[in-house]
């Protein structure tokens, strides 16, 4: 961040730039990103194990437990006669939505980092160490 302006007009030189097409690509990749899959697993699997057998509830189930429980509380207030298993559908959908959000951030950071590596590697190799922040 030494002397470079972070404005978009200067981004082409040394700052990573993600255009409209890049954004779409990030969105597409986020649907099946490792971060998306991992987040969905973390939210759903531990909670599902506890749902199948109470003894298998663990601290890892807490995020899914909170999401599912709050979902049923809201649902029960709106439509009291639904049985609670019905809420698995919105729960899984909601967890995937959250996971895609996390995956999007992950892919965006990765794309930014890759773009940054491409644009600044040559300059960085000529800079004397320790002078960049002076």
């Amino acid at each position: 961040m030494s002397g470079d302006s972070p404005g978009p007009e200067s981004g082409r030189g040394s700052e990573p730039s993600i255009g409209h097409a890049g954004g779409l690509e990030i969105g597409r990749r986020a649907l099946t990103s490792p971060a998306t899959v991992a987040t969905a697993i973390v939210l759903i699997v531990p909670f599902a194990l506890g749902w199948l057998r109470t003894e298998l509830f663990s601290p890892l189930a807490l995020p899914g437990y909170v999401i599912y429980s709050i979902g049923t509380a809201i649902g029960n207030a709106i439509a009291p006669r639904f049985e609670f298993w019905v809420y698995w559908v919105p729960f899984v959908g909601g967890c995937y939505g959250i996971a895609v959000g996390v995956g999007t951030v992950y892919e965006w950071v990765r794309a930014r980092r890759d773009a940054g590596d491409d644009g600044t590697e040559a300059n960085r190799s000529h800079s004397p160490p320790g002078n960049s922040d002076d």
Partner: peptide, 25 residues
């Protein structure tokens, strides 16, 4: 990516089992 996803799943399952046993009231 598949290997990483599989690794994440296995790790999560193992962690769940261990944490469940350790922290059960």
């Amino acid at each position: 990516m598949r290997r990483r996803s599989a690794l994440a799943a296995v790790t999560t399952l193992a962690g769940t089992a261990i944490a469940g046993v350790v922290s059960r009231p």
